[in-house]
Structures are given as C-alpha cells and as structure tokens.
Design a protein around this nucleic acid. Structure first.
Lengths: 208, 208, 208, 208
DNA sequence: TATGAATGAGGTTTCATTCAT
DNA sequence: GATGAATGAAACCTCATTCAT
C-alpha cells in the first residue's frame, strides 16, 4: 500500500524531510503528554522550532501531523524488527529472539505506541486504512517466522491459527506498555519476556 | 476504592440515575462514532433527549460525562463476569467457561471498550486511578479462578505468573474488539475463543 | 416621591413583608461579598431560606432584589438620622451632634453603603431616580439644620452654598467607608469625626 | 509598586500598545454606558475595531480589560495633575490652583472615574491593590503641597491631619462627578470649585 | 521560504426565569 | 403558597487556518 501523500507548499524535498522530522519529534513529545486533541498547532510549531506560518507550509491541516506521527512510529517499529530478523535463521530459537527483540522495542517506544493507539481513530477515513495496514505488515513478519518453524517441524499448527498467533504476539508486546501501571510494577522486562514467551509456546496446562 | 462523586444540582436521586443513564447511553453512541473530543456537550444533551441546560444540572463539566461512561462500562463488564462465575465450581472447566463468557461480553461491548481505552487518558488525575483500578478488579476475578485450578492440581504455575496471565486473558479479550478489522474478518467468535483458549492453556509448541 | 411598586404573585401583605426581609438580608450579605452581578438568584433564595421558585413569587426579576436592597438601606440610614434630630434643637451644637451621629451610622453600614454605590447603576431607568431622590432627602435633613444655624446667627452662609455643604457632609460620611483601606488604618472613627467636623466648620487656613 | 503584567500572545510591543489603546477606548465608552458586567467581550472587540479573536491576542481574559482601563484612567489623572504642579511654587496660591486644576480634570473624566469606582471591586485580589495604591499616590501629591504651605506658614495643621485633608480634596473632586445629577444641576464647575475651595480653606463658621 | 497577526466559527458553561406538580 | 427541574439564550474563550509582509 502506497504512502498517503501530504501536501506541502515548499518544493525542496530535502527541506520538507528536515522540517517534518522536527515537527514529528515535537508533536510526539506533546502528544505523549497531553494527547492529540489537547495539543495546539502553535505548540507543535514552537516545539519544532519554527513558526505557525512555517508549519502550514509543510502540511495542509492538523490531521496531517497525526498521520505523519503514526506513519513515523510504525516505520520505526517495522524497521527495528526487520533489522533483527535479517540476522536470523528460521528456527524456533530465532522466533524466540525476535519476540524478545520486539518486546524490547515496544518497551523503548511504549509512549509512542500508546499515543498512536489512542489517537489513530482521529485520522480521517482517508488515512486510517493505511495505518491499519501497517499493523498487518508487522504481523506478517511474525507469520513468516512461524511458518518457517512449522516447516522445520518445531511447531505444529493449523494454517488458520498462524495469523492469529502473530497478532497475539504483537498484542502482548503492546500490553507491556498499555498496562504499565500494573505490569511494570510487578515484573521486569526480562521476566515479562520470559513468562509471555513460555505462555505462547507452552501454555499453562500442567504437563508431566 | 470508593466511587468518585459527581456533582448534581438536582436532588432527587431517582431522577439523577434516570437522567444519567439517558446521558451515558447518548454519549456512548456518539463517542463510538466520533470520539470524546469531537463530540460536543450539546450533541450529548440532544442524544440524551434533553436540553443543554438540563445536562449541566446533572454534571459539573464535560469530563464528568466521560467518567460516568467509563464507570458504567466497567460496571457492566464486571457485573456480567460475576454473574457467570457465581454458577461455577473452581475447576479448569469453569475457567474455560469463564474465558468464553468474558470473550462474548467483550464481543457485545467491543465499541464501548474501545471508546474507553481511547479516551480514558482524557480523564483528570482525579478520576483516572479509579478507572484503572476497575481493570485490576476484573483481573482479580480471573486470578481467583486460576488459583483454584492450581489447588485442584489442574494447573501448575508459579505464584508470580498468576496475575500476568489474568491480565493476559483480559487483553486477549480486548484484542477481539481492537483488531476487529483483521481478526473478525478471518475468524468467527467461536473460533477465536477456541484458538485463544488453547493457546493460553496448551501453548503452541508441538507436543508428542 | 412614591415608592416604586414591586410585583408579587402572593397576596398576603404580611407574608410579602416577611419574605422580602429574608430576601434582603440574604442578598445584602452576598452582595457585600461578591457584588450584585456575581451573585445568582439561586444563592439569594438559599441565603433567604427558601427555594428559587418561592423567590419569584415575591419579585418579578433579579433587578427587583437590587431595588429592594437599595431601598431598605436608604430607609435605614434616613430613619437612623431622623430619630437623632428629633431630639435636638436647631443650634450649631446639635448640627455637630447630627454629623457625628450620621458618621457613626455610616461606620455601621459601610458595607451596605458601598454595595449600594457600586451596584445602583445596574438599576433600570425606572428605579434609579427613586434611589437618587433618597439621597436628596437625606441631604435635605442637613440643609434644614444648617438653615436653622443661620437663623440663630451661628453660621453665616449664602443660600446657594447650603445644599452643597449638606451634600458635602454626606460625602464625607461615605468617604469613611469608601476609603477604609487607607483612612481606617490611620484614624479612629472618633478622630475622623473630629477632624472632618473641624474642617467643615473652620477650614484649614491658619487663623490669628 | 510595579505595574501588573498583562499577558499578550503578540510580540510586537508597539502593536500591543496601539491595540490596547483602541481596546481601552472602546471599553471605556461601553463601560460608561452599561457597566463592566453588562458589556460583552465581543462588543469591546467591535468597538475597538477588531475581531474577538484579535482581542484575545492582547489579553488573557475579560478582567484584564478592566485592569487596563483602571490603570489607564489613573495614569491619565496623575499625569494631568503632575504636569500642573511642575509649574508651581509651593504656596497657598498654587495649592488653590492645583485643586482647581484637579477638579477640572475630574470634570473632564467624570464618566471614567465613575466607571472605575463602580467596577474596581470586580478586579481580582491580584490587581486590586495596585489600583488602590494609585489612589494613594494621587493623595500624596496633595500632601506634599499642603506640607509646603505649612512650611511657608500659610497653613497651620497638625501632621496627622494632612493625609486626611489630601484624601478629602480628592473625594470632593470625585463628588462633582458622582453627584452630578444634583450638583451639576445647581452649580457651574467654577462655582463648585470656588465654594469647595473656600470650604476647605476657611470652613463654614461665621467669623468676625 | 518564513513569519506571526488576524480571523471567527464553534466549543463549554452559566444562570435568570418559567411552570407543572 | 412552595417547590425545584427544565430551559435556552448568551456569555467567555480557544485555536485551526489564512495571508500580507
């Protein structure tokens, strides 16, 4: 799915990238603190280091900023995950490592991810599908790894279950940030990774 | 934790309950559609079937409405869960049934739950802890059931894992609503319940 | 000048008087504290000890309350002054005594008088003249006394100056309350009476 | 006492001064007519010649306008008085001239002064002391003149009386405006100045 | 390309007044 | 006579967006 174009009056592409990066950085900080709706465009401009007039040279309206922010967060998450799996072979060990790695990324970006989930609904009917699709792309990375483990015989799953489990992994990653007030009080990230990985892989039924 | 009092100018407690119920019903419908911030107090009043002046006889400010909505949703979810477990003995079978039952409730209330998660952040420092605590209460219901299964010997878990798994169950329930655009396209609720229950109980590692 | 009639739905004159007295008492307390505009009719009703509905059985609108308050304050001031001069013969000594007495009344009622002066402007074109006229009646009491002193030969004034001096006396009385934050810090009421009386009677130019 | 800062979003100090002057001018006209509370911010904006949005670029809230108005009136009065006394030597003749001059200023500004006295109470606990202090500064100008006359031997007064007399002069000046409906009907400004000056200087007791 | 003053639609909230009980 | 719930006009204020410089 192609990136949604955001209108800019300015022509210089290098400048557009630079200004939008400043803008996203400022916006994320503010959104974390007060959410999208309570943050004003003036505040974003100031946090980005330029004037409100300049802000509107690089976007068409406030929603564009939210879109750019969501897009940037997903790009970052996907990128981080892909750089990890490129170094891995497709066995259960590497699936475990990928889960651990992804959970660490979720820990680093918990504020950003929280923001995205709380505000994405404010995206127009136009931008929302693009962002939702990003989530699917992420899931597909895990689907591929799971499928490889099936091929190696390390996992034994029905085809239909695969995508659900992939999404499950992602949701468990988000859970670390979403429920921080209870989970992060009781577990370290390492403990959380271990328990969740075991849960996913081995379930909770007593074996013997 | 005691319910946070919401100020009303009107004295008649019966009337307060009635009007607030109308109000919550109207607000939920609107919040589902456009979110808390994009919904105006006037719209809420109209949807509730009375005038803006009347609305403010029953609340102090807009945030009170959000609080009432969140409170009401949690009450409903907790209530539904408790009515189920009252009929059950504390074995694995009844844990499974409780999970299935809770997932069905999450299905019925997916819009409401989504709203709550996206907007709860807009609650003041005053009301937020109360709402977060509700989540813990919900988790504790599952903790109790899991602990009973340990006592019967049907589950074999470390004490520390229990609360995490309880929260995990709740998160999986929410996932059905949060990821509806992908999950509900691919699975029926019954399938979802079965796969997730198996996943939680038995894990995904090939056995035998 | 006849008292302006204030409409009441209730017929019983005794009750009207009683309720309005409650109302005035409550209103004065509130007006002192927050002024006419910042005081709500509900607050007045509550302070008076009855409901908002009952309040409107005894007045037509909020301005009526202000009128009743102003009227009552003036009545009180005039009454207090007249009870004093009835005991006096018309010489300079009794003028001095009347001034002292009036200043004491102004001290007791400084809050009320302040309220009246700050809020009277909010009276309609209808009620204002009546209140202003009250001020004239008060001045006329002093005019009469001054004129008597001229007749006795104790004062020597042109006819035209008399009313101005009468008003001057009244203004000096109000000054005690209006400038309380500076004057009452530096002088006792007795000192103030003495200095102002001397000033009015003998001026400040060095004699001898 | 330092001027209280009023927040403006706009940076250009010259423009702030210009817009605030427009604003004060419009506000005074409206306040004269209907008082502070009955005047809306929209009306003030319109009277000032700009939009409601622009109004709020130069103030934080409605009360700021009242503060600016009071401040500006006092500044004007003080300024006018000081320009007069700079030309004078410190004798009785110049005190008389200063009184006359100040009364003329009070005549010109009677509406403004009336407004200030009726509405100053609406200032917050923050701004009120600053405005009250202005009154003291004004009184001190007269105190200085009176003290000079004592030094030259033209007046013979106890130290304690001086500030009271200074305040008395100011109050008599305000009286011209406050009681206009009775005093201005009976006396010209010149007559008023003469009678009041004589009253202050020589008293009303028959001499010789 | 950058600025920031100007705009005004639209948001939340208040409160005088009415009227059915 | 007394009540108090209901009303809605109107108040204050915000903030996304534009446009002249």
């Amino acid at each position: 799915m192609a990136k949604r174009a955001v209108h800019a009056s300015v022509k210089d592409e290098r400048l557009i990238k630079k200004r939008r990066d400043q803008m996203i950085k400022g916006a994320v900080t503010l959104f974390k603190e007060k959410g999208y709706h309570r943050t004003t465009t003036r505040e974003i401009a100031r946090a980005a280091g330029f004037s409100i007039g300049t802000l509107y040279e690089y976007i068409k309206n406030k929603e564009d900023i939210l879109y750019l922010v969501c897009d940037s967060i997903y790009d970052h998450v996907t990128e981080r995950l892909e750089e990890e799996i490129n170094n891995r072979t497709g066995n259960l060990q590497s699936l475990k490592a990928a889960i651990a790695h992804h959970f660490k990324v979720m820990d680093e970006m918990q504020d950003e991810v929280l923001v995205m989930y709380q505000e994405a609904k404010s995206l127009s009917k136009d931008a929302l599908p693009y962002v939702l699709n990003k989530e699917n792309e992420l899931a597909r990375v895990f689907e591929v790894m799971i499928r490889r483990c099936i091929e190696t015989g390390e996992l034994h799953l029905k085809e239909t279950d695969i995508s659900l489990i992939a999404h499950s992994i992602i949701v468990q990653g988000q859970m670390w940030g979403f429920r921080r007030w209870v989970i992060q009080k009781r577990y370290t990230l390492e403990q959380y990774i271990e328990i969740q990985t075991n849960l996913i892989l081995y379930g909770i039924t007593k074996k013997d």
